[in-house]
Simulated assay, not measured.
Amino acid sequence: MTGTLVLMGSGETSPTMVEVHRGVISALGPQPRAILLDTPYAFQENARDISARAQQYFARSVGLEVEVGGVIATADWVFSGPGSPTYALDRWLGGSDAGDLRARVRARQGVTVLASAAACTAGAATVPVYEIYKVGAEPYWREGLDLLRPLGLEAVVIPHYDNAEGGTHDTRFCYLGERRLSRMERELPAGTGILGVDEHTAVVIDLVAEQARVVGRGVLTVRAGGTLAVLPAGATASLGELRGLLRGEATAPEVKPVEAVARELTLEETVRACEESFATADGPSAATKIILDLEGEIARWAADMEEDAGGSEEARDALRRMIATLGADSGRSMAAQIVPPLLALRERLRQERAFALADAVRQALGEGGVLVEDTADGPRWSLLG
């Protein structure tokens, strides 16, 4: 009997969560019926593109064929991710989906993965993040799906708990910041606590064994009754221990040593490392390899449904800057070493129908003083000026 509830802070379709997905589907047997609930982002004009990227991610990286939509009650694996929590709630609570999701958890059956906006809806109340952070509404709570109540957990779930995109202003706690969260926390019913899930982090709850495990890059923070408990990656806790933490009556369980796992870099961290290496690269060959490595990372993160700070646009900007720098600093002899592999990269991108990135390579070459002309015999290049 398999029953698992996974709450992800972010990174649900990024390389950082691949092993988490693989781990929870491994117990489902061959060819499980898997559905993606697109409800949280269904209002977006690019909803189909987001779903297609997610399907590609699960097929290629996880080995799971996913259907968009479908009947929750008959699915082995259900996933929902980014978008607007309140948009999703309006539709789920108005139909059978909310009841079907609750029934899965209550029956301790199947795998249910809720990430980002969808994770926000899992508790007794929900953060209306679009309305508060983007529209400027006064802080308030919306009702939640309350999936955790059958587990004896009186809690709200706050993903993106350690978000730092704001830079000069506080965007922790799903963009609320400490001031607004403290105010909202006081408005929660007595005995209701907060489960804060960091970005690129997941809480995997075994519904049958009643055991929760923290995996990924960050921590699970439990706030309740003026107390604060932090469970780092690798920590496990029984649901009984979590209930005690949420009542403010217990301390975090002792973390047992776990096997070290290679820390998966985010795309933002990879871009920063590539820029630092590029600045000290020993010659054009080394610099070109760094550019190619970055292009590979951009492709690897292309399926990410919800980009955190340092997403693909920022990575492409860094790629353009590197190529432009090479072109600006090189003469004919250096260009002869650098341009051919970049043109080969452009040709491969075109074959893969990544036309926007291929055009970016050509544009960056132009900014660096290299004119690229497409001819019947292939691309031809020359130095401008």
Score class of each variant (00 low, 15 high):
L64M: 03
P257G: 08
D282P: 04
V68R: 10
V6P: 01
C174N: 14
D293G: 03
G283S: 10
G70V: 03
L384W: 08
R320H: 11
G218C: 00
L7I: 11
I338K: 04
T121Y: 03
M8G: 05
A75V: 01
L89G: 03
T236R: 14
G366I: 01
A233R: 06
C274M: 14
E12M: 05
T325Y: 06
P189G: 09
A27T: 08
A354N: 15
T288R: 12
L343S: 02
A75F: 00
L294S: 05
P150E: 01
T201Y: 00
E314S: 13
T251C: 09
A303P: 06
E314A: 14
I132V: 13
Q55N: 05
A281V: 01
L228H: 14
Y175D: 10
V339R: 02
V71L: 15
G240V: 07
Q211L: 15
N163A: 09
L114N: 07
Q337M: 14
V135W: 13
A122G: 01
V370L: 07
L101S: 05
V258H: 11
Y57S: 01
L357S: 12
R179Y: 11
I158Y: 05
G368K: 02
E254Q: 11
I158Q: 06
G94A: 11
P32F: 02
L153F: 04
A237R: 00
R321K: 10
L357D: 15
H21V: 00
A75R: 01
N163P: 03
L89E: 04
V129A: 13
D100M: 14
L384G: 05
T251P: 07
P159D: 05
V24F: 01
N163L: 07
T86G: 10
T266L: 06
T270Y: 14
E65D: 07
L349T: 04
L147R: 00
M17R: 02
P284Q: 13
A73H: 06
S312C: 15
T126N: 07
V24D: 00
A328F: 10
V230R: 08
I25L: 06
T171H: 04
G310H: 04
L349M: 06
C120F: 10
P257Q: 07
L181Y: 08
T39W: 15
D90W: 09
